[in-house]
């Protein structure tokens, strides 16, 4: 055909087709999204420290392994209470003239999703020691260590944030590990990563591809009322919600996270304080050097059934031999301690 033998017509046609398609699948949707989008009313803007922390998060390429999106499928529920929506990213702008916007949604989950990690793991102590070397608290972790965010000091001052690094991870045992401004900013950013509550009355997208009928039933009951449908797996739930601090062997980390083996609270016949701590957090042992415990049960939306499973696992493991509790009993206590 003559048309194809003329380089001008051939390549202009080629370019035109590509440009038209580009407009419809990239430029137009992107502009549309930019125009018709606003942050959720409850959204909290990043603090100055968190802003700096985010810059570090970007500079060190954390997005290579950590996504920041909860997809609207059931399996992503472990990372957030609702699927992410466009408005969650509305407030993210270009970093500066040189560098592009960073939504940090990511395409690879070598490590866990972080969009709600501020709720899941709010402890500064844990985050700092984990950044210094992730293997201090999660021995199987393959995450890089970030020792350059810390300095070693023989005599830390009162203002210094000293990190409780276990001895075997220290080269020079006479010195203390002190978090730099960078480390504190990065942790501030991680702590700020919380899914914003939807304004009351708005519908958010449903989770699709429910695992099975049973979990669907639990989801619809929203954790209200005892559910006998599932026998929750205490070991797995402990691993997901508690193990990062209290460790697989229940012994915690000296100077940072208390041991559950032989713990008075865990072994107590009356489980009320135990439930209260899980649902509302705890900070009564700060004078012993232990960090505050977040309200894990409330943040992770654990059901009475799941909390019972975790409690019974803790009551009967690592040499603990206490009386187990029932779902009904725990449900009553949850309602009682609810704030």
């Amino acid at each position: 055909m003559e048309f194809f033998n003329n380089h001008k017509s051939l390549f202009i046609a080629t370019a035109a087709l590509f440009l038209i398609l580009t407009f419809f699948v990239a430029i137009m949707p992107a502009l549309n999204n930019q125009k018709d989008n606003a942050p959720l009313p409850n959204a909290v803007p990043l603090s100055a420290a968190a802003q700096k922390g985010k810059a570090l998060y970007i500079a060190n390429g954390c997005v290579a392994c950590h996504t920041q999106q909860v997809r609207n499928i059931d399996m992503d529920k472990m990372f957030g209470s609702r699927p992410s929506v466009s408005a969650d990213y509305a407030d993210i702008k270009r970093q500066d003239i040189w560098r592009n916007t960073a939504t940090l949604m990511g395409t690879e989950r070598t490590g866990p999703d972080l969009i709600n990690v501020g709720n899941r793991q709010p402890s500064q102590d844990w985050n700092l020691v984990h950044l210094y070397n992730p293997r201090t608290v999660v021995s199987e972790s393959i995450m890089p260590a970030y020792p350059w965010l810390f300095i070693l000091k023989e005599y830390p001052t009162m203002d210094d944030v000293v990190v409780a690094v276990p001895e075997e991870f220290l080269k020079d045992k006479s010195k203390k590990v002190v978090a730099t401004e960078d480390a504190l900013n990065l942790v501030a950013y991680l702590q700020s990563l919380k899914q914003t509550e939807m304004p009351t009355g708005t519908n958010f997208p449903e989770f699709l591809y429910k695992r099975n009928v049973k979990s669907a039933a639990v989801a619809s009951s929203g954790g209200e009322g005892p559910s006998k449908v599932i026998a929750a797996d205490g070991v797995a739930l402990y691993a997901t919600n508690c193990q990062a601090c209290h460790q697989q062997n229940g012994k915690g980390l000296p100077g940072a996270f208390p041991s559950l083996a032989g713990s008075k609270v865990v072994l107590d016949e009356n489980p009320e304080i135990f439930v209260d701590i899980i649902m509302n957090g705890y900070n009564a042992r700060a004078n012993e050097g232990f960090g505050p415990m977040p309200a894990v049960g409330t943040m992770a939306n654990l059901t009475a059934d799941e909390i019972t499973a975790i409690m019974n696992h803790e009551k009967t493991s690592w040499g603990n031999d206490a009386k187990t509790v029932t779902v009904e009993e725990i449900q009553k206590l949850i309602d009682k301690v609810k704030k």
């Binding site: 380089h7 390549f11 080629t14 370019a15 590509f18 440009l19 580009t22 990239a26 430029i27 949707p29 992107a30 502009l31 999204n33 930019q34 989008n37 466009s86 990213y89 509305a90 407030d91 993210i92 702008k93 270009r94 003239i97 040189w98 592009n100 916007t101 960073a102 939504t103 949604m105």
Partner: peptide
């Protein structure tokens, strides 16, 4: 080959022109 060059120039410009792509616009692009 020529088409590939045209396309590469277009996508580089669309992706890198530094005055747009806020929020999810970045992800779509």
């Amino acid at each position: 080959m020529v088409a590939a060059l045209i396309f590469a120039i277009v996508i580089t410009l669309v992706a890198y022109l530094p005055f747009w792509q806020t929020g999810l616009g970045e992800t779509i692009v």
